[in-house]
């Protein structure tokens, strides 16, 4: 009997936990990549970003498929995949981490909140610790995260034959994800 009551209490506690925490997600987030140099425009967009976020803990993950990046120039897209990202060998890139100031966010109140990220970024099979900042806009209880950060291409072991003269050694990554 005691056991039954205990498990009931535990169960209701778990239910409360489940209610208290909400997972926001999207499969159509947007990440833009820009490694343009004064000589050449090297920019792409990916509209198939998979992202999930837990409101209470600030836990967040972004996953992208490299082959989903679309360039204006088909030849550039092929080079990006074959020579730089080796996307057949490393089809995915991922960020896993936390919004470090999640406790300051109020998902029930419309507004714009500054957010800080801390986690691990995996590109081209290489993991690096990164921190970044961005903005979370909440509208009708639906959050949108936008942010911009820079990635040193060499840190991820990306060594295309043109690096150094044709494309910038730092790539700008901008994120814009509308969650449901």
């Amino acid at each position: 009997m005691k056991k039954a009551i205990l498990s009931l209490i535990l169960f209701s506690g778990m239910c409360f936990q489940l209610h208290a925490q909400k997972i926001y997600s999207t499969k159509t987030g947007q990440i833009k990549f820009n490694a343009s140099s004064p000589l050449e425009k090297v920019a792409a967009v990916n509209d198939q970003v998979d992202s999930k976020m837990v409101d209470k803990t600030g836990q967040i993950v972004f996953s992208v498929l490299i082959k989903s990046f679309r360039f204006e120039n088909q030849l550039m897209e092929d080079h990006f995949n074959e020579n730089y990202m080796e996307s057949s060998k490393f089809p995915k890139a991922e960020f896993r981490g936390y919004i470090t100031n999640a406790s300051t966010l109020n998902f029930a109140k419309d507004g714009k909140y500054p957010v800080n990220f801390d986690g691990t970024l995996t590109i081209h099979g290489v993991q690096q610790k990164v921190t970044a900042s961005g903005i979370m806009a909440i509208e009708g209880a639906k959050p949108t995260i936008s942010g911009l950060f820079k990635v040193k291409i060499k840190d991820y072991g990306i060594t295309g034959s043109y690096i150094g003269n044709k494309i910038a050694d730092e790539a700008e990554i901008s994120v814009n994800c509308k969650y449901e």
């Binding site: 992208v64 679309r70 089809p91």
Partner: peptide, 13 residues
């Protein structure tokens, strides 16, 4: 479509 890989779904572009 062109298969670009597998996240939580298999993705076609």
């Amino acid at each position: 479509g062109v298969c670009t890989g597998f996240l939580s779904d298999v993705v076609l572009n």
